[in-house]
Design a protein around this nucleic acid. Sequence first.
RNA 1: GGGCAGUUAGCUCAGUGGGAGAGCGCUACCUUGACACGGUAGAGGUCGUUGGUUCGAUCCCAAUACUGCCCA
Length: 876
Amino acid sequence: MPSVYDPKKTEEKWYDFWLEGKFFEAGKDPNKKTYTIVIPPPNVTGNLHIGHALNNTLQDILVRFKRMQGYDTLWLPGMDHAGIATQARVEAKLREEGISRHDMGREKFVEKVWEWKETYAKNIAHQWRKIGISVDYSRERFTLDEGLSNAVREVFVRLYEKGLIYRGKYIINWDPVARTALSDIEVIYKEVKGALYHMNYPLKDGSGFIRVATTRPETMLGDTAVAVHPEDERYKHLIGKTVILPIVGREIPIIADEYVDPEFGSGAVKITPAHDPNDFEIGQRHNLPQVVVMDEAGKMNENAGKYQGMDRFDCRKQIVKDLQEAGVLVEIEEHVHSVGHSERSDAVVEPYLSTQWFVKMKPLAEKAIEIQKNGKGVRFVPERFEKIYLHWIENVRDWCISRQLWWGHRIPAWYCDDCGEMTVAREEPKTCPKCQSQRLRQDEDVLDTWFSSALWPFSTLGWPEETADLKRYYPTDVLVTGFDIIYFWVARMIFMALEFVEEKPFQDVLIHGLVRDAEGRKMSKSLGNGVDPMEVIEKYGADAMRFMLSTGCTPGNDQRFRWERVEAAQHFANKIWNASRFVLMNLEGVTPEELSLSDKKLSASDRWILHRLNETIRDVTQLLERYEFGEVGRILYNFIWDEFCDWYIEFAKLPLYGEDMEAKRTTQAVLVHVLDQSLRLLHPIMPFITEEIWQHLPVAGESITIANWPTENPAYHAPEAVRDMQILIEMIRAVRNIRAEMEVAPKHQIELFVRPGMDVLPAIQNNEAAIKRLCGVKQLHVDPAMERPEKAMTAVVTGAELFLPLAGLVDIEQTIARLQAELKKLNAEVERVEKKLANPGFVAKAPQHVVEAERKKGEEYKAKREKVLARLAEMQ
RNA sequence: GGGCAGUUAGCUCAGUGGGAGAGCGCUACCUUGACACGGUAGAGGUCGUUGGUUCGAUCCCAAUACUGCCCA
């Protein structure tokens, strides 16, 4: 084994090994309990970003953990066709070649997208294996594959038949760049500096004018009324009168409607029913005409008169100029307001009147709200996200599901060219059910991508067929995802599942944060600050990346990506590697039988590390159950590095290099056991390096991926060994401290006198060799009754006094200074404890064990202080 | 406007109703038979501010300031 761990040489090898062994395939043992996760399907067009790496790592940790615990684990992989995103990218590519999708036609274009899909799906699959995820590829799904498309149709038809899907002409959010409708949540509101334009609309009777204000003056071309509040004294006399719409010349009425806020602007508003959602509703109440003045690309249409063909923003400039010249526009006021932008194209969203398909949300939401409120709902981790979810689902509006795209699930509705009848069906109808005509046309639109994603937890398991997988693995155990798609995805999966499978889709939802850049900014293409997980793996290995991502944060919180942290994780991997090298190098000629721990005589350090291993097993297991990955990482890091490597291995060198064969065997057995168990505990986080090392161990089985998860062994419970080790460690540190202060060369062996109390005497006597080795001591004298040596450096530790007669080096001044510093600390501690114990409230009300602990501490501090004072008295 | 997070060592972040922690960085020493991606010893914080609850608050509660996110 080389002295530096090289992830590149090992990672690829083991992933192939795992696949060949089919360790990740579910369903091998019907007697096992199941543990199921469905992967949040990444968009098929694109690379996995560092957020996917985090998301996948967390799931992999859970699945590997449960697999080792003996569950029949199914982690089901798959990808999403990502309608707008994918289509936009393929269109952009075609545009470079000077082709539009309309040139190609629908069929050819969709074929082209499928080609792209194949390329990118391969790419993502490759990235999955690099990250090391333990998914069951035999069950991989794609949102547009046949089974899932059947599920989509089934759901659509059933909802339609129930009256929960309808088609109608409403104001929707229109993306003029992607030229499609959007749902409410695909609109992102941003604060934008704009202006409020005040205009005087002249009354028809010549008696003056009425002032209205707007932020979108170009929409005035579509005005069909002016509205005022019915109780507004300023305008009461004008209700029912007519104004002449400037430029257009259309006569429009002044109407009264409660919706108008008399406080805002002039208290009178222009009404554009075809270009504003509120105006649309007012228009419906008052039977106003709806004049659409723009086309699908955001250009002014034939209803815009001389502005026809102009872009909406150019038109705004021109119309402002014209209105100013006409004396209609009387004031322009700076105004900050929030403007909707398309989540995908970032285009300013246009409220637009058009015919679309909708899901009626209230009845679906009700079920979800009900189970959540009576405690049978989904458990959100962290809890606070439940409120966010509930608030949304309680206020949800109908969902616009039709998209004017070609890439996606085509809406299963057909129109008869002869009688106009619409048919919604699972299979394409041959003839019109009303007039028997064969001239049927399928609806051109496709469904919102999230419609199919909403079915993911059950459609991937075979629904609507009652498959064995669906029976066995549904509902899933946990969904792991980011808070940014709670509305888009989590909420929709829940209400769809409740409607169609009548059971919630997952027990828990684990919400994680974003991975931000080192400055805390969101990673984005436009900033170019994204981190490619493949680059991280290339440089540091997947294990280091996984350790860094999964242990770098608290649940639900964002984290910053810092290369130094990946480097630290890499160093940790290397540390484990070298500790393992040490163990393996010292096993020559040992048979696996000799490594059995039973009937071995254990030393204090053996019992100590085994006791600590027990505690580590307990903590890691509990923390994983609670999704506390950050704590798991820290605990394993500290146990392996600070306790196993820094102390146990150093203690182990003595028997390993010594003559006592029995002691040597014992140490070897403990080393192998602790290493084996540590590797298992670490495997879910760092799968590659743990498999690599584990396979070198004499106790290894087929694969660590299916090795048993460690459990506590009560036989190794040894709190007294912990106490002994604490004393030894304190002593060793004190000696090293003096050596460092006195600049004693590390190679220079010294003489050490120890005057222990009777309570610590056995611990010291039993470990004299270790003390000598770790302190660089050639002669060690231990005697509870010893006389203080002349001219010696002195230290006081718990239960013992140390004397170092450093010939020619003893510095009285420095010793006094150090003892005085120690005295100062002890004084402070004693004072703090005594003050506490002097407080009758504390003694009376604090828990008994806390008071006891304080008393004990106080006594120890005082005893130590006495010794320090005695030493000082002798020297001064 | 409503809601939710965060504010702890130079930096990035953990954490706990009872003696403040890690990684990186910094200082000194050390290539000691696993590891310089290392070892040993150290320096460094009135836990945002102000009140309250409590025997005791960095932790619980309230207010407040700043930062960020979500919703309208």
